[in-house]
Protein backbone atom coordinates (compact mmCIF):
# COMPACT_ATOMS: atom_id res chain seq x y z
CA UNK A 1 0.00 0.00 0.00
CA UNK A 2 1.95 3.02 -1.15
CA UNK A 3 1.68 6.15 0.96
CA UNK A 4 -0.20 8.11 -1.61
CA UNK A 5 -3.17 5.82 -1.23
CA UNK A 6 -3.60 6.66 2.40
CA UNK A 7 -6.19 9.23 3.26
CA UNK A 8 -5.26 11.62 5.99
CA UNK A 9 -7.21 14.23 7.88
CA UNK A 10 -5.53 16.90 9.93
CA UNK A 11 -7.66 18.52 12.58
CA UNK A 12 -7.09 22.25 12.61
CA UNK A 13 -7.94 24.82 15.21
CA UNK A 14 -7.44 28.50 15.69
CA UNK A 15 -4.60 29.44 17.93
CA UNK A 16 -4.00 32.38 20.15
CA UNK A 17 -0.69 34.12 20.62
CA UNK A 18 0.36 33.70 24.24
CA UNK A 19 1.45 37.33 24.68
CA UNK A 20 -0.79 39.39 22.46
CA UNK A 21 -3.76 37.04 22.37
CA UNK A 22 -4.12 37.53 18.62
CA UNK A 23 -5.64 34.82 16.52
CA UNK A 24 -3.18 32.72 14.59
CA UNK A 25 -2.93 29.22 13.22
CA UNK A 26 -2.52 26.83 16.14
CA UNK A 27 1.16 25.93 16.13
CA UNK A 28 0.83 22.24 16.82
CA UNK A 29 -1.93 21.83 14.27
CA UNK A 30 0.29 23.50 11.71
CA UNK A 31 2.99 20.96 12.50
CA UNK A 32 0.48 18.18 12.12
CA UNK A 33 -0.54 19.60 8.75
CA UNK A 34 3.11 19.72 7.75
CA UNK A 35 3.55 16.07 8.66
CA UNK A 36 0.41 15.23 6.71
CA UNK A 37 1.91 16.82 3.63
CA UNK A 38 4.01 13.74 3.03
CA UNK A 39 1.30 11.25 3.85
CA UNK A 40 -0.63 11.30 0.65
CA UNK A 41 -4.09 12.67 0.18
CA UNK A 42 -5.08 15.00 2.92
CA UNK A 43 -7.82 17.31 4.10
CA UNK A 44 -7.57 19.96 6.80
CA UNK A 45 -10.70 19.87 8.91
CA UNK A 46 -11.95 22.33 11.48
CA UNK A 47 -15.10 21.78 13.48
CA UNK A 48 -16.53 25.17 14.28
CA UNK A 49 -18.11 28.29 12.95
CA UNK A 50 -17.82 29.27 9.30
CA UNK A 51 -17.18 32.84 10.42
CA UNK A 52 -13.67 31.72 11.21
CA UNK A 53 -13.01 30.87 7.58
CA UNK A 54 -10.77 33.89 7.09
CA UNK A 55 -8.63 33.00 10.04
CA UNK A 56 -8.32 29.43 8.81
CA UNK A 57 -6.84 30.66 5.59
CA UNK A 58 -3.55 30.75 7.46
CA UNK A 59 -3.61 26.97 7.11
CA UNK A 60 -4.76 27.09 3.52
CA UNK A 61 -1.82 29.41 2.78
CA UNK A 62 0.52 26.53 3.52
CA UNK A 63 -0.65 25.03 0.21
CA UNK A 64 -0.67 21.51 1.60
CA UNK A 65 -4.27 20.51 1.21
CA UNK A 66 -7.73 22.00 1.06
CA UNK A 67 -9.19 23.28 4.29
CA UNK A 68 -12.75 22.66 5.23
CA UNK A 69 -15.01 23.72 8.07
CA UNK A 70 -17.37 21.20 9.58
CA UNK A 71 -19.93 23.71 10.64
CA UNK A 72 -21.45 23.36 14.09
CA UNK A 73 -23.07 25.71 16.55
CA UNK A 74 -21.12 27.60 19.16
CA UNK A 75 -22.47 25.44 21.97
CA UNK A 76 -21.89 22.14 20.22
CA UNK A 77 -19.29 19.57 21.06
CA UNK A 78 -16.69 19.28 18.30
CA UNK A 79 -15.86 15.72 19.33
CA UNK A 80 -19.38 14.61 18.60
CA UNK A 81 -19.33 16.35 15.24
CA UNK A 82 -15.97 14.93 14.24
CA UNK A 83 -16.88 11.50 15.41
CA UNK A 84 -20.06 11.60 13.33
CA UNK A 85 -18.03 12.82 10.36
CA UNK A 86 -15.41 10.09 10.60
CA UNK A 87 -18.04 7.40 10.98
CA UNK A 88 -19.14 8.35 7.51
CA UNK A 89 -15.86 9.37 5.93
CA UNK A 90 -13.13 6.84 6.52
CA UNK A 91 -9.69 8.19 7.17
CA UNK A 92 -6.53 6.15 7.55
CA UNK A 93 -4.76 8.69 9.65
CA UNK A 94 -6.17 11.47 11.76
CA UNK A 95 -3.50 13.92 12.84
CA UNK A 96 -4.04 16.33 15.70
CA UNK A 97 -2.16 18.64 18.00
CA UNK A 98 -1.87 17.78 21.67
CA UNK A 99 -3.73 20.74 23.04
CA UNK A 100 -5.79 23.62 21.70
CA UNK A 101 -4.58 27.15 22.26
CA UNK A 102 -8.05 28.39 23.16
CA UNK A 103 -10.76 27.32 25.52
CA UNK A 104 -10.58 24.39 27.86
CA UNK A 105 -7.54 23.07 26.01
CA UNK A 106 -7.79 19.83 27.90
CA UNK A 107 -6.08 17.83 25.18
CA UNK A 108 -8.90 15.27 25.38
CA UNK A 109 -10.14 15.53 21.82
CA UNK A 110 -7.93 12.91 20.16
CA UNK A 111 -8.50 10.45 22.98
CA UNK A 112 -12.26 10.93 22.98
CA UNK A 113 -12.28 10.58 19.23
CA UNK A 114 -10.16 7.44 19.53
CA UNK A 115 -12.58 6.00 22.04
CA UNK A 116 -15.65 6.80 20.04
CA UNK A 117 -14.20 5.56 16.74
CA UNK A 118 -12.36 2.69 18.42
CA UNK A 119 -9.01 3.70 16.97
CA UNK A 120 -5.58 3.42 18.50
CA UNK A 121 -4.15 6.77 19.62
CA UNK A 122 -0.44 7.53 19.68
CA UNK A 123 0.87 10.65 21.32
CA UNK A 124 4.12 12.62 20.98
CA UNK A 125 4.58 11.63 17.36
CA UNK A 126 7.47 13.29 15.59
CA UNK A 127 7.90 11.10 12.53
CA UNK A 128 5.73 8.77 10.50
CA UNK A 129 6.93 6.33 7.94
CA UNK A 130 5.01 3.80 5.95
CA UNK A 131 6.01 0.15 5.91
CA UNK A 132 4.71 -2.98 4.25
CA UNK A 133 2.42 -3.71 7.13
CA UNK A 134 1.45 -0.34 8.44
CA UNK A 135 3.10 2.69 9.93
CA UNK A 136 6.32 3.12 11.79
CA UNK A 137 6.05 5.93 14.26
CA UNK A 138 8.81 7.72 16.06
CA UNK A 139 7.68 8.95 19.41
CA UNK A 140 9.55 11.85 20.97
CA UNK A 141 10.29 11.48 24.66
CA UNK A 142 11.64 14.18 26.93
CA UNK A 143 15.26 15.29 26.58
CA UNK A 144 15.72 14.16 23.03
CA UNK A 145 15.01 10.45 23.55
CA UNK A 146 13.10 8.58 20.86
CA UNK A 147 10.99 5.42 20.79
CA UNK A 148 9.94 3.39 17.77
CA UNK A 149 6.35 2.17 17.57
CA UNK A 150 4.35 0.48 14.91
CA UNK A 151 0.64 0.62 14.29
CA UNK A 152 -1.79 -0.34 11.58
CA UNK A 153 -3.96 2.40 10.18
CA UNK A 154 -6.57 3.61 10.76
CA UNK A 155 -5.21 5.44 13.76
CA UNK A 156 -5.03 8.80 15.47
CA UNK A 157 -1.66 10.46 15.81
CA UNK A 158 -0.97 13.34 18.17
CA UNK A 159 1.89 15.51 17.08
CA UNK A 160 4.85 16.39 19.30
CA UNK A 161 6.61 19.73 19.58
CA UNK A 162 9.72 18.21 18.08
CA UNK A 163 8.01 17.27 14.83
CA UNK A 164 9.39 19.18 11.84
CA UNK A 165 8.62 22.89 11.80
CA UNK A 166 5.54 23.93 9.91
CA UNK A 167 6.13 25.80 6.71
CA UNK A 168 5.35 29.46 6.38
CA UNK A 169 1.90 30.61 5.41
CA UNK A 170 2.09 32.38 2.06
CA UNK A 171 -0.12 35.43 2.09
CA UNK A 172 -1.11 35.26 -1.56
CA UNK A 173 -2.03 31.60 -1.43
CA UNK A 174 -4.04 32.22 1.72
CA UNK A 175 -5.96 35.10 0.18
CA UNK A 176 -6.86 33.08 -2.89
CA UNK A 177 -7.85 29.99 -0.96
CA UNK A 178 -11.45 29.06 -0.51
CA UNK A 179 -12.40 27.35 2.69
CA UNK A 180 -14.88 24.54 2.19
CA UNK A 181 -18.00 24.03 4.23
CA UNK A 182 -19.67 20.87 5.48
CA UNK A 183 -22.69 20.55 7.70
CA UNK A 184 -21.66 19.10 11.05
CA UNK A 185 -23.63 17.15 13.59
CA UNK A 186 -24.68 19.20 16.61
CA UNK A 187 -24.66 17.89 20.13
CA UNK A 188 -24.53 20.41 22.95
CA UNK A 189 -21.60 20.42 25.32
CA UNK A 190 -23.41 21.43 28.49
CA UNK A 191 -20.41 21.46 30.82
CA UNK A 192 -18.52 23.82 28.60
CA UNK A 193 -21.40 26.25 28.57
CA UNK A 194 -20.73 27.01 32.21
CA UNK A 195 -17.01 27.49 31.90
CA UNK A 196 -15.77 30.75 33.23
CA UNK A 197 -12.35 31.70 31.92
CA UNK A 198 -10.10 34.18 33.66
CA UNK A 199 -6.65 35.49 32.92
CA UNK A 200 -4.00 33.09 34.10
CA UNK A 201 -2.87 33.92 37.59
CA UNK A 202 0.81 33.99 38.26
CA UNK A 203 2.10 30.83 39.82
CA UNK A 204 3.92 31.70 43.00
CA UNK A 205 7.43 30.38 43.14
CA UNK A 206 7.56 27.51 45.53
CA UNK A 207 9.27 28.45 48.75
CA UNK A 208 12.09 26.19 49.71
CA UNK A 209 10.84 24.46 52.79
CA UNK A 210 13.46 24.87 55.40
CA UNK A 211 13.78 21.81 57.47
CA UNK A 212 16.28 23.25 59.82
CA UNK A 213 16.62 22.20 63.34
CA UNK A 214 18.92 25.00 64.44
CA UNK A 215 18.93 28.73 63.89
CA UNK A 216 22.24 28.45 62.11
CA UNK A 217 20.82 25.92 59.69
CA UNK A 218 17.92 28.18 58.95
CA UNK A 219 20.26 31.08 58.38
CA UNK A 220 22.38 29.01 56.07
CA UNK A 221 19.40 27.82 54.08
CA UNK A 222 18.11 31.35 53.75
CA UNK A 223 21.40 32.86 52.64
CA UNK A 224 22.45 30.11 50.31
CA UNK A 225 19.21 30.00 48.38
CA UNK A 226 18.98 33.74 48.06
CA UNK A 227 22.52 34.47 47.02
CA UNK A 228 21.93 35.29 43.37
CA UNK A 229 24.75 35.55 40.89
CA UNK A 230 26.94 32.65 40.22
CA UNK A 231 29.86 31.22 41.99
CA UNK A 232 33.19 32.19 40.50
CA UNK A 233 36.10 29.87 41.05
CA UNK A 234 39.69 30.58 40.20
CA UNK A 235 41.02 27.09 40.62
CA UNK A 236 44.59 26.38 41.61
CA UNK A 237 44.69 23.32 39.45
CA UNK A 238 42.56 22.44 36.47
CA UNK A 239 41.55 19.32 38.35
CA UNK A 240 39.90 21.50 40.95
CA UNK A 241 37.98 23.39 38.29
CA UNK A 242 36.90 20.21 36.57
CA UNK A 243 35.70 18.79 39.88
CA UNK A 244 33.51 21.79 40.51
CA UNK A 245 31.91 21.37 37.11
CA UNK A 246 31.43 17.68 37.54
CA UNK A 247 29.80 18.24 40.90
CA UNK A 248 27.20 20.48 39.34
CA UNK A 249 26.62 18.05 36.48
CA UNK A 250 26.03 15.27 38.97
CA UNK A 251 23.61 17.37 40.94
CA UNK A 252 21.69 17.91 37.75
CA UNK A 253 21.76 14.21 37.04
CA UNK A 254 23.53 14.68 33.73
CA UNK A 255 26.54 12.65 34.66
CA UNK A 256 26.21 9.42 36.57
CA UNK A 257 27.00 9.56 40.26
CA UNK A 258 29.00 6.68 41.55
Amino acid sequence: MPLSQLTTHTLLSLGKHPLSGRTRRAEQDAKAFELAAKLGQCLGLHAGNYQDADALKSFAGMSIAPVCILEIEQSSDPVAALSAYFKQTKSDIILTGSQAERGESSGMLPYLLGKSLDLPVINQVCEVEQTETGLNITQALPRGARRALSVKPPCILIIDESAPEARQTAYGAAMRAEVGKLQGYNEADTDAANFNFEDARKKPKRMKKIKAKTAADRFKAATVSQAKGGQVIEPKTSQEGAEAILKLLKEEGLVKTN
Binding site: G61, M62, S63, R167, Q168, T169, A170, Y171, G172
Partner: peptide, 13 residues
Protein backbone atom coordinates in the same frame (compact mmCIF):
# COMPACT_ATOMS: atom_id res chain seq x y z
CA UNK B 1 9.09 34.19 -2.43
CA UNK B 2 7.51 35.39 0.79
CA UNK B 3 3.98 36.23 -0.26
CA UNK B 4 3.36 33.51 -2.80
CA UNK B 5 5.76 30.75 -1.90
CA UNK B 6 6.10 31.16 1.85
CA UNK B 7 9.84 30.67 1.53
CA UNK B 8 11.36 33.34 3.70
CA UNK B 9 14.63 31.79 4.86
CA UNK B 10 16.44 31.59 8.17
CA UNK B 11 14.76 33.26 11.09
CA UNK B 12 12.73 35.30 8.64
CA UNK B 13 9.59 33.25 9.12
Amino acid sequence: LTLEKGQTPGQGT
